[in-house]
Design a protein around this nucleic acid. Structure first.
Lengths: 106, 106
DNA sequence: ACGCTATACATCGTAACACGAAGTATTATC
DNA sequence: GATAATACTTCGTGTTACGATGTATAGCGT
């Protein structure tokens, strides 16, 4: 899939991946993989960006003698997910513009 | 709307804007405006990129004593629009991942 | 004649961003 | 004891959208 098309979806996808329960880097990548593949360097960049934006918080915990960073979504992160619904409406409108002939010809 | 979300749509939108008939910069911006706003500098960057990718051709013509550059979509440009249908399927899949709770709770 | 707005295209610099490459370190498997 | 899987980090690079700025003509009001 076109890189550019992914861009706007990535942040929201990561937030969605930690929405229901706290998760960690490696698991987020695996959970997202069937829908959207992203590299580790990309994910950790995104996680830091979302942390700076206070859309998630980080907690380090030990798991099988190894350290893991668990990411927890915040109120602002949940707000971002809500806002995405509005973005989606615009995307649908743009989609119609792009494929407008289809509406006429079937 | 989030800049990042626009990125993948921009090129395809411009191609869609010249699909049915040749158009020129100023008109493309006006046609797209209700769906997706973009600045002139952005559009001309995109038009050059699409020309390099051979997705459109350019022709200069005089209109009311002023020069206009008319852009014409090529076979490759039309192919790109077709490919967008496949991209769209992936986007829908990602959308479901992001909003998956909605499918369970209504 | 003069100013203003709309039309029309072009260039430059910048900041955001995804990603490959490479590195560090532990646990499990063969 | 070698290889793969897990887990996180840093660096450099190329793509890109956009604001700022510039050039130039047409039309309209005063």
């Amino acid at each position: 899939m076109d890189i550019q098309l992914k861009r706007g979806l990535l942040d929201v996808c990561v937030l969605a991946a930690i929405k229901d329960e706290d998760s960690y880097g490696y698991k987020i990548i695996k959970d997202m993989k069937p829908y959207l593949e992203l590299s580790e360097s990309t994910l950790y960049t995104i996680l830091k960006r979302l942390e700076s934006a206070e859309m998630l918080t980080v907690r380090t915990a030990e798991h099988d003698g190894r350290l893991r960073k668990y990411y927890h979504i915040t109120k602002l992160g949940l707000n971002r997910l809500d806002e995405f619904r509005d973005d989606w409406k615009e995307i649908i409108s743009i989609y119609r513009f792009i494929t407008k002939e289809d509406n006429l010809n079937g």
